[in-house]
Design a protein around this nucleic acid. Structure first.
Lengths: 147, 147
DNA sequence: CCAAACTGGTTTCATTTGTAACCATCGAAA
DNA sequence: TTTCGATGGTTACAAATGAAACCAGTTTGG
């Protein structure tokens, strides 16, 4: 074990990134092929589908996107008429976003595909491995959100 | 549990991506602040520092980068005189890349910082949590490289 | 009240990225 | 051999991203 060498293969930040990149790339094929969505657009669709109504700021918090990404994704989904904006009654800076019928249809079509993707991935692991990844990821999330 | 809703917060691809993004962003500050490196440049430096000599293709495989990223990173490090290219004797398409003294110095400066970063991250977890993340990530890596 | 600081959201501009086309070289098969 | 498909690597172009400036509206402290 030479101290001056870093083994990239076992370096956690690198491994996490590569893993997430691979999984995310694979999954993105689904919404890209299906609807030509970008990741920010998919997350926006997904967030609104799940929660019903959100503001752009809330969307950014929920899905860990920079506000410019949210802004552009919302603009694109609006252009497709997949969502509408409703001005807030009391604060005129704020807009409440919600999916249209068309947006909801697309979302409902995506949900089973997303779940199937996750299931397929997890099905290749043993029960202990599934527990391990869940526990490990949760632990890291916890420390990172704390700091 | 409504079947038509996807909970983004517990969706593995999303969680992995967010986690990796957060960690990677945090870590990138180190090499960005220090040397103004991009991620592909850091990986190239790191790969060559670890292995000594590699071709661009090998670099791409080792660090999971598309060949255009490798190409550009190598060009930049060469511009800085952190690496040199040596034509292969028998195959004139291939170049063997190696760090110069300056490149090696930068690498050696980075290694302890990278290790400290990883240690700090892992130190916030319990022993079981560390085992869990290692096991879980390894299991996912294994199934993904298999498929 | 009113100025200053702040917040929600958009736009601009420079940088990074991905895709595909490309050039040169190599290897295999006819 | 010649030719044709694969391979190492670069480049060109379009799309995605991040940082910072920006606009409008809101809050706060004097």
């Amino acid at each position: 074990m030479e101290p001056e060498i870093l083994e990239l293969e076992s370096f956690l930040p690198y491994r996490l990134y590569r893993l997430a990149d691979t999984v995310s790339r694979e999954f993105s094929k689904i919404y890209k092929d299906r609807h030509g969505l970008t990741r920010p657009e998919w997350r926006t669709l997904s967030g609104l589908g799940e929660r019903g109504t959100m503001t752009a700021t809330e969307l950014g918090e929920q899905s860990a996107m920079h506000k410019t990404k949210v802004s552009r994704a919302v603009a694109e989904l609006e252009r497709r008429r997949w969502l509408t904006r409703t001005p807030d009654e009391t604060d005129r800076r704020v807009e409440h976003l919600a999916l249209t019928k068309a947006g909801l249809t697309a979302y409902r079509e995506m949900v089973p595909l997303a779940k199937a993707f996750e299931q397929d991935l997890l099905a290749r692991l043993s029960a202990e491995e599934r527990t391990a990844i869940a526990k490990g990821v949760a632990a890291l999330e916890a420390t990172l959100s704390a700091s």
